[in-house]
Amino acid sequence: MEWHQYLYPMLKGAWVTVELTFFSTILGGIFSFAFGIGKLSHNWISKAISIGYIEIFRGTSLLVQMFWLFYALPLVGQQIGINTSIPPIIAGVLALSLNIGAYGAEVVRGAIQAVPKEQYEAAKALNFTARQTMWRIALPQALPEMMPPFGNLAIQNLKDTALVSLITIADLAFIAERLRNITQDSPTVYTIALFIYFGMALVLAAGLKWLSRHLGNWRSAGGR
């Protein structure tokens, strides 16, 4: 096989990587907001669950989490008599999302807390409800703060998708490993793989930079 013949299958794998990154980042984002805001809640149940989630998924290894969902979860179901085995792709996306969600939750929490206390006072004086204050006053001001760290998390997520190849999902890493097995041409295969990942990361980074600039427009208006 010639090196350029590697490209087609690897790009197909790369597309799977893109899809994985996309869905897990979005789902992870939802978890981030849910549990980041939940950690700030006055309701102690929400707070406890959020803290528990964040500590567990930040405090353990992503690969261990992924293997657990893929190998161990079905066994939990066996004990209680229901089928809890999930297809590899779900296990992969879920593990990635839960993991990035936990880190993202801390980012969300930190950004919300960074909104000056005076803003909350002004909102209270105008009689906004707590929910209105969160969604209309605090979050919009917190979002530009969140973007740089979120950007880093998204790129980290892209890299982490390579691990799903270990639970049999046919992403770029999986295809690369298979090609290496067939051709024994590891230098070429892995060099191409590295550069494809590199390229994807750069595109993602550029996209995120555009997004964060767009979100924080009101910040640059002025410059006092």
């Binding site: 998708t161 390579a162 590891s186 990942y197 590199f198 980074a205």
Partner: peptide, 21 residues
């Protein structure tokens, strides 16, 4: 930048398989 933007898994395979070859 390259080291930062590429997955650990692939870097590992590279070191383990490519360097010896």
């Amino acid at each position: 930048e390259f080291l930062r933007d590429t997955p650990l898994l692939i870097q590992l395979f590279f070191v383990f398989y490519v360097l010896p070859q």
